[in-house]
Amino acid sequence: MKFMLSRNQFFLLLFIVQTGSSFFSFPAPFVNAAGRDAWLLFIVSAIFHYMLLLFYERNYDYFTMGPFVSWLYKGYWLFVVISYLAYVDYTLAVWGFPKTPQYIVIGILVTVSLYANLSRAETAINLPVLLIPLILAFLGFLQFAWGDVIWTNIFPIGQITGTEWWKGLLKGQTAFIGIELYLVFRSRVDIKQNIKGLPLFVYQMTWFLFFFFSVLLTIWYFTPTGVKLVPEPLLFLLRTQEVTFIERLDLFFLYIWTVWTIVTVTLVSFTALYVHRQHAKEKQVRDTIIWHVLLVVLPLFFLKKENVDYLNDLIIYVHLVFAIIIPVIVIFINRRKRK
């Protein structure tokens, strides 16, 4: 599979995968774990995120996957997509489609990915562009809540305990998921386009402000008791808004988020199949279909709230292995080999 990415395509791809499914699921567990100072903790998390990006940028050349590591990552991405699909399907069932058979909803979500991944690479790569106006509309409509926020909710500052720091830093990792795609696609970026320095910093700030805004809005809008009751605070916040042109603003954005997740599933599948094709060049169509059949079947086993919550907790630890531990080992070994 041969393709080249422009700098913008690369960053957009990374941004969509990092925000995709986790954007709605991130604020509540994070704020519950870190308390009122969650916003402060997220700033610390963001510094760590930037350091990780700088580390990747410095060493991406050394991150080459052999068949074994490649299978590990394929397994990881399969797990990530299954978690996302189970979560989005459960959320859709609760908010919008309680009676629609869940395999139909998952089928729709996965079909788009199947089509894109059977087509040319450009189809999957350019899919995120579709989301730009939708994300802007989403951010715009969140501003309706501005009149209802309670600014003093973030005070008093600095009450966070050691346990909250630790729990918060772990939960904060949800916003990092997908960052390892940087290592996979960095070498595909047009070498004439600079990534190091300002462009990387701009990406970091975009990612940071996006999640930071969601954390702040959750703290400002909800009381600590309230945020414990609401697993998707941003969606709930949209539900409470009264506008003249639509009865349920939350449903409108639930669909936007669904599209967002579809694109994320497509991109993560694209990444897994791209890595797979580097070592298995034959029967690519068959493998693509098998991958997508797995994506339809496996989430069906995790559609209960209990299972969805379990996957959302587990994914953090698995992510740490694949975003930090394995890359560090692979880079270290390859650096030594090249010396």
Binding site: G96, F97, P98, K99, T100, P101, I104, V105, G107, I108, T111
Partner: peptide
Amino acid sequence: SIACSFLLAGCWD
């Protein structure tokens, strides 16, 4: 048939 069944999504609700 499979493709068309997807168009029914939401009819249940």
